[in-house]
Design a protein around this nucleic acid. Structure first.
Length: 330
DNA sequence: GATACATGAAAAG
DNA sequence: TTTTCCTGTATCC
């Protein structure tokens, strides 16, 4: 259950795990690919033995290029797909930090094996002869569509809505129908976002989740960013002022970047006054509270708005639950 | 054991 | 607008 920030993190994790040489001056080791579940058997065969190049994401789409072949693995997690990373507990010293972090996050679902919660203690000193024998990869748990593995790390993919091998044209066709990605934030993206929104009369709450308008945000960011910028989700795109849309773009940039850095969505600023600042405040570095205290409006329907006290509303928009404060968002 | 639900998107009607 | 697809977890009998 991932929004764009999770996919960018997975791209980074896959790159660190499978697209960077493990020894100085070494080559990238070929990846072992398989489909324990069987539903991606043909694709896994194509991938098995390939050297992988650095992965990248555009919105919620993940692309993993093959180094010596002009093709890509393309994955979209859909509503409940996930990646699970595991590491050889004896090789902790070689693990890239993004993998070693002791956390389990829905959607990317990273976890470490070995000493729970403390990767640093989990082993360089373990068994001096350990490296003599290769790591026994653990049995896949549940429905694993694709398993990627090398001598140190393993990534299991389950439940994706899309998992396929694409040629460059196939990849480009997907990117062509995506809007700007706030995590890429390239020159001109803000203008493109503003123009796309202002050309439509559908409600802004719908447009923020429309991947051809902006690629990355999902249901949580939609609710939270519209609250943070004080925009009513039912307001037609055309009728949102350019000023507010520029504010909204910048808020999405900051919000998704925070999600990327923290590995979870945390959007509720420590002080309400920070909401009024010209530039959005970044939350990375802050201590992360319990889930119930991370959001302003998401799943807070029936409770009092933290800013104005009005009861937070839940309505259904495009078959998804929409949360907002009718008092603050007009 | 059911059943409901989830951070999504495309196809079908 | 409704249905369909993909899976794991929580909650309720």
């Amino acid at each position: 259950m991932p929004e764009g920030h999770s996919i960018h993190r997975v791209a980074k994790a896959l790159t660190l795990a499978f697209a960077e040489p493990k020894e100085p001056h070494g080559k990238v080791a070929p990846v072992h690919a398989s489909s324990p579940q069987g539903r991606f058997a043909a694709g896994a065969t194509l991938m098995d033995g390939q050297r992988l190049a650095p992965a990248h994401a555009w919105g919620k789409h993940l692309f993993v290029p093959f180094e010596e072949d002009q093709r890509y693995l393309h994955v979209h997690l859909g509503l409940y797909g996930s990646w699970t990373f595991q590491a050889d507990p004896r090789q902790a010293a070689k693990l890239p930090p993004v993998i070693g972090a002791p956390r389990v996050t829905v959607g990317e679902d990273q976890r470490t094996t070995g000493t729970a919660g403390d990767p640093a203690s989990s082993s360089p000193k373990a068994d001096p002869n350990a490296h003599e024998e290769s790591w026994q990869w653990p049995e896949p748990k549940g429905q694993v569509r694709l398993r990627l593995a090398n001598d140190y790390l393993l990534a299991d993919l389950s439940g994706p809505t899309k998992c396929q091998i694409l040629d460059p044209e196939g990849r480009q066709a997907i990117i062509n129908r995506l809007g700007p990605d706030p995590l890429r934030n390239e020159p001109g993206d803000e203008d493109r976002f503003v123009k796309l929104v202002r050309a439509k009369k559908s409600p802004i709450g719908q447009l923020v989740m429309d991947q051809s308008v902006v690629a990355g945000p999902g249901n949580i960011y939609r609710a939270e960013c519209l609250f943070r910028t004080g925009i009513n989700p039912w307001r037609p795109g055309q009728k949102v002022s350019e000023k507010r849309l520029r504010q909204l773009w910048k808020d999405l940039v900051a919000g998704l970047a925070d999600g990327f850095d923290m590995g979870l969505i945390y959007t509720r600023l420590p002080e309400l006054e920070l909401l009024e600042q010209a530039e959005p405040t970044r939350l990375v570095g802050q201590e992360v509270p319990e889930r119930e205290e991370r959001f302003y409006v998401y799943q807070r329907d029936g409770q009092a708005c933290l800013k104005c006290g009005t009861t937070v509303k839940m309505e259904v928009m495009q078959a998804r639950k929409l949360f907002y404060c009718p008092g603050c968002q007009r």
